[in-house]
Amino acid sequence: MNPVVAELWPYFILIFAGFLPNEIWRILGLVLARRLNEGTELLIWVRAIATAILAGVIGKLIFFPVGALIGIPLSVRIGSILIGLVAYALVRRSVFAGVVAGDAALILGTMLLS
């Protein structure tokens, strides 16, 4: 392979295996959204699908962890989410407080159980 091509090759891979396969869905969304107006019934349905998919991402991360999360017991993963929710509710519906409490619970819980 010539040196310039060899140097740029990882960036071609980034475009064709990373950027475009992901971006295509955003562009399709742009095309489909053209005729939709805010407040229509169809849009409530689409938002429900988007919300359910996001919730699904969370569910999978909790029950089928990746990377370093594999080492954390399932009970600690579920417990930390619940502690985060409780802290969020107690501290004036603060997402920040919930995230800090939940993450601290994950670290402490793992240390206590192992």
Partner: peptide, 24 residues
Amino acid sequence: VIEAAIAVTLSGVRLLPMVVALLP
């Protein structure tokens, strides 16, 4: 590379309903 591209595109589907819900 092809397998990687397919795995990426499967994970990206969620972006479509998100864009459709946001742009209006």
